[in-house]
Design a protein around this nucleic acid. Structure first.
Lengths: 109, 109
DNA sequence: TTATTTAATCGTAATATTGCAATACGTTAT
DNA sequence: ATAACGTATTGCAATATTACGATTAAATAA
């Protein structure tokens, strides 16, 4: 199939999975690290930094943007991409809750 | 293509992306939440809880196990799945580092 | 206007993922 | 031995993802 049965899961589970999926590619991890390091990035810079073709980078940027993780501002011929603080902080918090919901093995198998 | 060019990314980026991918499905989020809540789970329990077929659950469990996030112990006819503490805590720490590497917009576009 | 620059979109090929029915595999019970 | 139970594996269909060449679009420069 290849089609996730989203209807059987909670909204929370689906949202968390969607956000994680947006991060779950080395190119997108690298893009986010570059944006964070430089405070903001332009598509062309990322094409030079990573070794991927321009359409590929553009596609990854769109995915991050669709997930709400980054935002793009048109600046003349260029587009300036940077982190969307609200979404980032929300995701950071949710991930924290998720990971902290488990603490150590009090009698496992 | 559908083939990620892992060779152009750092080991760290690939590992983080791989771990995130293992979590990036609502069924696997749900499975982990169930395991954490119950401390340990059996495949059949998860089949009942979530609404997915047994082979599908088994497959998701295998992915989580391959990623090192959970471990399975054979207990007679059953297999007891629980969190792998080391991998979990490592991932939690890495996620923390990743999310904390960005702090607020000091002059964005 | 006509280049030039930068990024998005389209189309497509290769591969990966999701889900399940059918089946196989171990382990325990009878 | 054989039946029952719980799980893993296989095989397959439908869909999604990744990557890029070719092209388009939109803004600035000449």
């Amino acid at each position: 199939m290849g089609l996730t049965k989203t209807e059987i899961f909670t909204e929370e589970q689906n949202q968390l999975a969607t956000m994680l999926k947006a991060l779950a590619h080395p190119a997108r991890v690298a893009i986010l690290q570059s944006i964070i390091r430089a405070n903001s990035c332009i598509c062309g810079d990322l094409v030079d930094e990573l070794g991927l073709a321009q359409p590929t980078i553009s596609q990854h940027l769109r995915e991050l943007k669709n997930a709400g993780i980054i935002q793009g501002t048109i600046e003349g011929v260029k587009v300036c991409y940077c982190i969307e603080p609200k979404a980032w902080n929300l995701l950071a918090k949710e991930m924290n809750v998720f990971f902290n919901s488990y603490q150590d093995p009090k009698g496992c198998c």
